[in-house]
Write a protein that binds this DNA or RNA. Structure first.
Lengths: 218, 218
DNA sequence: TATTGAGTCGTGTTATTTCACGATGCAATG
DNA sequence: CATTGCATCGTGAAATAACACGACTCAATA
């Protein structure tokens, strides 16, 4: 076997990385002591040099430490997870024709689950009821990500409440008369436009994303 | 101020929780020593009782420890993040009419970012090109979550490759002649159906989800 | 007013960890 | 065959963290 390049993991490094992946799956921090047990290593000094090499190559982060007695915690980086072929969702350029692992290696991007739908604090989800936005490819049962407290641009889709209406609906927003009046349009042609005074309209949130589960979950 | 119920955080507990949230945002593990510094507490014994109460009430997890010299790492639980009103996306029952915090408190569910689109190892994303699935509310530029290696049910949508075609497309799949032939239908009526022998069809993945970003990301 | 509990601080003990050093076996390379 | 790098193991010393204890303040209650 040729000596692996610094982009790859040596066999021992891969063993360490897999153990770290197990820790991550169990949502446990990667304490050195636990890692030692999982790898059945006798002494901490058997692990540290390997770990330091992995950290130098960017496969893991070593947090804490720096002084004697101060515990370290090891974590896989995105690069480390990628090197194992796990974690994150590969965003492929085209439908994979050959073996999957090959396609994953060519993945244009690896997207972490948490980054799938970028959101800020304050954002919220709403489950869409009814077919009123079917023309904008939003179906009954879809989840929509809404952002309150931001300006709703002309022609954008937002969750709006009119007057004392508590329920509210998704509508495409058009400003008319220099902003005095607001036209609300459902994208289903069966629904008619509604035009109301701007002060009677309350924007609950601007549409930032759409999410749909197909088939049974998981 | 009345003594808070065990479901709420006392002021000191909230301070600790906010510090932990900061750590989480910075993707740093919650070492006791770092926590002490962030809270400007003089001694570790000032923090431990508070932490233990929070752990008993399910706001934080204390990992590690158990023996002298073995470091602990503290992490906010989902309940803890919820108590701070941060983290996770609240799935609301209806559009919030009043103040947002009230609506969030009534949230039917708090969804962690990683659980938004449930996926298994091996799943991958593909960016949809073209308007061929517009009738199924999948637009140009949407991301679709595909699961390879599972059976494609009748009438389900899947990424398919026919023959030597490498590109592949999203199609709705119908089995005919007892499974001998497969009819592939784009949901855009401008595209015609295609019927091919089952052995010439390769399913790259079964559609499990659709994801759309609206407007600029972030 | 007395009581209760939370939060804070300090001290001492003890177990554990990190760190630094050297030594060995092994595989692949030149 | 000698060299190089990796992985493993052992030892010793220094430093630190957890743990347990008691004491104090402060607020809200009964």
């Amino acid at each position: 076997m040729p000596r692996p390049a610094s982009q790859d993991l040596t066999s021992a490094q891969e063993r360490v990385a897999r153990a770290l992946a197990d820790f991550e799956r169990a949502e446990r921090p990667g304490f050195i002591a636990d890692l030692l047990k999982a790898l059945r290593l006798a002494a901490e000094s058997s692990l540290t040099p390997t770990l330091q090499k992995m950290a130098r190559n960017g496969f893991v982060d070593i947090l804490g430490g720096g002084a004697q007695g101060r515990s370290r915690v090891v974590r896989l980086t995105v690069k480390g997870r990628h090197a194992l072929g796990i974690g994150g969702l590969p965003l492929l350029g085209s439908i994979p024709a050959g073996p999957l692992s090959e396609a994953v290696a060519q993945a244009a991007e690896i997207i972490e689950p948490g980054a799938l739908l970028p959101h800020r604090p304050g954002d919220f989800l709403l489950r869409v009821r009814g077919e009123s936005m079917i023309g904008d490819a939003i179906l009954d049962g879809d989840l929509v990500l809404l952002r309150p407290g931001v300006a709703v641009p002309h022609k954008a889709i937002a969750a709006v409440c009119v007057g004392d209406d508590r329920e509210g609906t998704l509508k495409r927003v058009f400003y008319e008369n220099g902003g005095e009046r607001v036209r609300l349009r459902a994208s289903n042609p069966l629904f008619k436009d509604m035009t109301v005074a701007a002060e009677r309209v309350h924007f609950a949130g601007l549409l930032k994303g759409v999410l749909r589960h197909v088939g049974s979950r998981k």
